[in-house]
Amino acid sequence: MSELDVFSLAANNLFSPPVLAFVLGLIAVSVKSDLRLPEAFYQAISIYLLLGIGIKGGVALRNAELADIWLPLLVTLALGLTIPVAAFYLSGVVTKLDAVNRGALAAHYGSTSLVTFTAAMVFVETSGQFVEGFLVTLLAVLEIPGIIVGLLLASRGRKNAIAWGESLREVLAGRSIVLLVGGLALGAITGSRGFASIEPFFAGLFTGVLTLFLLELGIVAGRRLKDIRTAGVGVVVFGLTFPLLAGFLGVAGGLLSGLSVGGAALLGVLSASSSYIAAPTAVRLALPEASPGIYLTASLGITFPFNLIVGIPVYYWLSQSLEGVLSWNS
């Protein structure tokens, strides 16, 4: 496919239905609309997306060779441990937050956002670029370690012990992991043959459902924006710059581990994204002194919109640009 410059890529991304729906959600909040997706419907869509992504990834996993996977898996694990540590220390550079709040941020930025990944996958695939299907496995790998490392870093700033059992149980038995890992297993077992029977539902309808989901997320993110004032400039700077650093690490790691341009771009997205479902729950239970006004605002109000609108095309462009330099598997 022809190499588009970063602005054409950004325009393609911005004018796609999911991202436009997100912007519509932001606008709805700004005009004080009462628009909200019904709670049950929103929950149903998130189950659909999680399971769908998991199954598709599982089908791809079954078709993949171990030789293609093991190095990216290793690199992903390394990223899962490095990024939260980097977030913990770099947030101390641009903000005056204490260890507990920085650990909370580290837990969020060390983990991933399924929706950002999904939107990025849709973007890269509609650009005609190939993406390794087993990227979803890397998503599953990146979810948990970041949260654990973030909580560990924060625990050094607290007097009381952390409620590890409760937090980890919430995350590991939570909807995200069960559907993602279960979906992977389901897809791997049923394979392409089995997937053909559900393809119209999980593949054909996918982008449309994602559009609805992002509409709601635009509304939720829009409501978070007013907390930016109390969060402070440092948090805003962190929320806008750290994803670029983490995204660069992910893209570079992806290319070096032999992933395609599309695959490395997605690993960059995974690295740059921050969780706002799994991590906030774990952090709320384990770190009560950490302020949601900081970590949730950063993750959902600043980084998520940034990644969705600006980040995705930028990491893809980075991957294209660095391919000649770093990739040995083209």
Binding site: E39, V220, R223, D227, Y276, I277, P280, T281, R284, P292, G293, L296, L300
Partner: peptide
């Protein structure tokens, strides 16, 4: 004491 409404957490 302040905010805490309408999070994704429900």
């Amino acid at each position: 004491r302040g905010q805490r409404e309408g999070d994704l957490q429900g």
